[in-house]
Design a protein around this nucleic acid. Structure first.
Length: 455
RNA sequence: GCGAUCGUAGCUCAGUUGGUUAGAGCGCCGGUUUGUGGUACCGGAGGUCGGGGGUUCGAGACCCCUCGAUCGCCCCA
């Protein structure tokens, strides 16, 4: 144990139910993304460091301390992607995706952040991501949020609410920030140490501080509403009324902010309701899906001004909350009872599988132990397969179904098997043989000739 | 980066105020039995107690360091 290598800190190996839940999230995302006609995009897992440095801004701790950056052999500084947005923006610019604008893009995959691991937070983690690039209209925000909302519903995630705010346009935002700084400076000594520092670095963040000393000084006179320009207000009204029309429930969250400068207008997070089961499962890492409008980003990457809005969500966190897929599919486990029956077993498996039925084939497992193995693998029906030395073309099958709990053995003939699962290719039962061998096996099947032709 | 709790078999854990050859359940392997099967019974393998150092006649238990996990804070693109 001590000698064998360990997985590196903050990474995880996913298997079993967790892996199924993970796959369920991705599959559901893929399905919903098609419903909303978002197009798939794939970007490299690493980029030049400047892609992230320029988009996020050199100043923050993020760039200096929380990215996996390294030099390649050519001496170029590269970084494992810590987020999707910057890479997508870079791809948009370098591939001339303007020609498709406005373009709706969706992607998912691993991301890397050098952070202290905690619940639902890893150094290699995975997100799903959706962006609409080249659309300045509030309807784009609505479209994007409607998709997110439907996704969460289809994942069976309950007790989660869309928290919504606006950061205004550039002008509104600057005025708001100035007013906040002025207000908090006047009570600086009463703020928490962290917030006194935030006053310099990131004053907006004081609004969502958890420290009671800070909360005392946050009130509604500081909401951005009083600083919004007419056009920014109109934009936000369009978003909220659009959400209402689209059936997306939301609530206003005046203290919801974004630290980075490129964010404009809409900012949002889906957060578990207080006291809900979901909140319990997530602990302090509570946001399950978040995003906003980032009209300023393309310019910081040296592109033409391009409006865009997007969101991302952690797959691990979604998987923790998602309901079980609950798809009970008839699943077969085939057990050849002796080596001579293996070809018959292979063919049986082939026929079932080509009819779309899931089949697990067990070899190297004693027939006696098989049920236990199969139970672990969530098999619903076991097919014990055997054949006779004097009639290698024939085989017989014992059919045991829903074996959990009961000890009963259901016996059916091959035609029933075929009917029940509507197989295109069937097993034909020879009456004589069936009778002849009834003592030994309950059904005897002779393989029919209409085997699929192999090309 | 800061704080707290934890780390004993593949898994879940027990291990009394430091005291002989470190235990259980499940799992795994083998055997017997139930004629068709998940059962039961018998047997077996598997641990330098996360790693390193120290205190002690003696350490899985105590101290220090380190690695990792978990939960908060910071950060959150």
């Amino acid at each position: 144990m001590s000698k064998s290598p360990q997985a590196i800190r903050g990474t995880q190996d996913i298997f079993g139910p967790d892996a199924e839940a993970f796959a369920f999230v991705v599959e559901t995302f893929e399905r919903v993304r098609r419903l909303y006609r978002f197009r798939r995009a794939e970007m490299p897992v690493f980029e030049k460091t400047e892609v992230f440095a320029r988009s996020i801004g050199e100043t923050t701790d993020i760039v200096s301390k929380e990215m996996y950056s390294f030099e390649d052999r050519g001496g170029e500084s590269l970084t494992l992607r810590p987020e999707f947005t910057a890479g997508i923006a870079r791809a948009f610019l370098s591939n001339g995706w303007q020609q498709h604008a406005p373009v709706k893009l969706a992607t998912h995959g691993p991301l890397f952040r050098y952070e202290r691991p905690q619940k639902g937070r890893y150094r290699q983690f995975h997100q799903i991501d959706a962006e609409i690039i080249g659309a300045a209209e509030p309807q784009a925000d609505v479209e994007l949020l409607a998709m997110a909302d439907q996704l969460l519903k289809e994942l069976g995630i309950e007790g989660v609410t869309l928290h919504l705010n606006t950061l205004g346009d550039g002008e509104s935002r600057d005025a708001w920030r100035a007013a906040l700084v002025e207000h908090f400076l006047s009570v600086k000594d009463e703020l928490s140490e962290d917030s006194q520092e935030r006053l310099e670095k990131n004053p907006l963040r004081i609004l969502d501080s958890k420290d009671p000393r800070d909360k005392k000084h946050v009130n509604h006179t500081l909401d951005i509403d009083t600083f919004l320009s007419d056009s920014a207000r109109r934009f936000f009204d369009e978003v909220t009324s659009g959400l209402d029309a689209a059936g997306v429930k939301w609530q206003r969250a005046p203290n919801l902010v974004r630290g980075l400068d490129y964010y404009r207008h809409t900012a949002f997070e889906f957060i578990p309701d207080e006291g809900s089961e979901a909140a319990d499962k997530l602990g302090s890492q509570s946001t399950i899906l978040g995003g906003g409008r980032y009209d300023g980003l393309m310019e910081s990457l040296g592109g033409a001004p391009t409006p865009a809005v997007g969101w991302a969500a952690g797959i691990e966190r979604l998987a923790m909350l998602a309901g079980s897929p609950n798809r009970r599919v008839e699943t077969f486990g085939i057990v050849p009872e002796r080596p001579e029956a293996s070809h018959f077993a292979q063919e049986l498996a082939y026929i079932l599988r080509s009819n779309g039925l899931p089949v697990d084939m067990l070899f190297n497992v004693s027939a006696r132990k098989a049920p236990k193995k199969l139970y672990d693998r969530e098999i619903t029906t076991i097919l014990y397969v055997n054949n006779f030395d004097d009639a290698p073309q024939s085989g017989f099958i014992n059919f045991k179904r829903n074996f959990s709990g009961s000890h009963s053995l259901e016996k059916r003939v091959g035609m029933r098997l075929a009917e029940e699962f509507r197989l295109e290719r069937t097993f034909d039962v020879s009456e004589e043989e069936a009778v002849l061998n009834r003592e030994r096996a309950d059904l005897v099947l002779r393989r029919r000739v209409d085997k699929p032709t192999k090309s």
